[in-house]
Structures are given as C-alpha cells and as structure tokens.
C-alpha cells in the first residue's frame, strides 16, 4: 500500500468522527433581549435539537431540521471507504461520502448564514455562530483530501534521463540540435611534441 493511500485512509478516519462531533455541537445561538428589563432568552441550535438555555422549557425536539442525519450517513460511508480502501468500490464510496458530507454541510451553512438575517418585531435579536460550522469545514476538507488520496491515480509518463529537444519549426535540413560533431584528425595520429 502506497504512502499517499495510507495518508488518505488516516484523513478519512479523522474526518468521519470529526463530522459526527460537529453534528452534536452548537450551530448557532439566538439571544432575544426582551424589552423593559425582562431579561433575555437564549436558544442553542445543534444539528438535532433546540435547547432553551437557562430556562425550564429545556429541549425542544419537534419541528426542528435534523440536518445531522445526512452527516452521519456520510461519515459511515467515509469509514466504509477507509476500511476497505484496497477495493475500487470502496474508494468510490469514500469519494461519494466526502461529496455527500460537503453537500449537506454546505446547505447547513446556508441555513445558518440565513439565521443572521432573522428579525423579530418584539425583541432585540442577537445571533452568534457556534463551533459546529468551522468544525464541519475542517471535516469536509479532510474528507475530500482523504477521498482523493486513496484513489488509484494513473501512472505518470516516465521522465527521460537525456536532454529533451523540442523542434519548433518543421524544417529538417537545419543544423542538428546538438550541432555537427567536430572531426578531429589529430586524434587518430600519434601525438608528437
């Protein structure tokens, strides 16, 4: 097994748990500053649940986008591809998993980005980015790099060990590229001093 494939397997095996960890971290936090000194209320959004911070409401599960599901599926494809990296189908599975992870993390990114445009007429809303999106980014880069490294790339053309001469015009009655060898008549005769 080549060095680049080993590196690729390592990158895939790091990317997969990283993506799953990111799916359990906070995507963004919304803080509502209530009017007339009624305090504030914060909601933390992960890829699975919404949690009301410091409030008896606790966790709100229903009606929230479970964007973590495709991430977990993509991570398992990455692991499958890394474990069986010797086979062509597994290398292609790793590539598909990396693309699936990138697609879902990218769309999640747009969803989170749009949260910064949220408004509400009743309170002052403050949106803060959580650690999940940067970690998703790292996982995507590692997964893509790993998926490309494990592939079997076609062999490069061999480098010639002699000087390479490129002909730039079509004429072939010119001086040869390395010149005309000099005939030294003295070389045949005995050297006399």
């Amino acid at each position: 097994m080549t060095r680049s494939r080993l590196l690729g397997i390592a990158a895939l095996l790091i990317a997969a748990p990283l993506a799953i960890v990111a799916a359990f971290l906070v995507l963004y936090t919304e803080t509502y500053e209530l009017r007339a000194g009624e305090g504030s209320r914060s909601y933390e959004y992960t890829s699975w649940v919404v949690t009301a911070v410091g409030s008896p409401e606790g966790t709100i599960v229903g009606g929230y986008p479970l964007v973590g599901v495709p991430v977990v599926v993509a991570a398992s494809l990455l692991v499958l591809g890394a474990v069986r990296a010797g086979a062509l189908w597994a290398r292609l599975t790793a590539l598909g998993g990396a693309a699936l992870l990138l697609g879902s993390a990218w769309t999640t990114g747009h969803h989170v980005l749009a949260a910064f445009g949220d408004e509400t007429p009743v309170a002052n809303l403050d949106v803060e980015l959580g650690p999940a999106m940067p970690l998703f980014g790292v996982a995507c880069v590692l997964a893509l790099a790993g998926a490309l490294l494990v592939q079997q790339w076609p062999a490069r053309a061999a480098e010639p060990d002699v000087a390479v001469v490129h002909r730039v015009d079509g004429a072939d009655d010119d001086t040869p590229p390395f010149g005309i060898p000099v005939v030294d008549p003295a070389a045949d005769e005995p050297h006399v001093r």
Binding site: G63, V69, A98, A99, G103, A105
Partner: peptide
C-alpha cells in the same frame, strides 16, 4: 469519478434542503 462527486454533492444538499423545508 467526477460524476460520483457531483451526485454525492447533489444528494447531500437536496437531503439537507428537504430536512430543513420539511421542518418548517
């Protein structure tokens, strides 16, 4: 291989889009 990457990217973004829209 490029077709696999495109299909994976499409599947990931459509899946997440579906999940977000369905939740709304």
């Amino acid at each position: 291989s490029t077709a696999i990457a495109g299909t994976g990217l499409l599947a990931g973004s459509v899946w997440t889009t579906f999940v977000v829209v369905a939740a709304s």
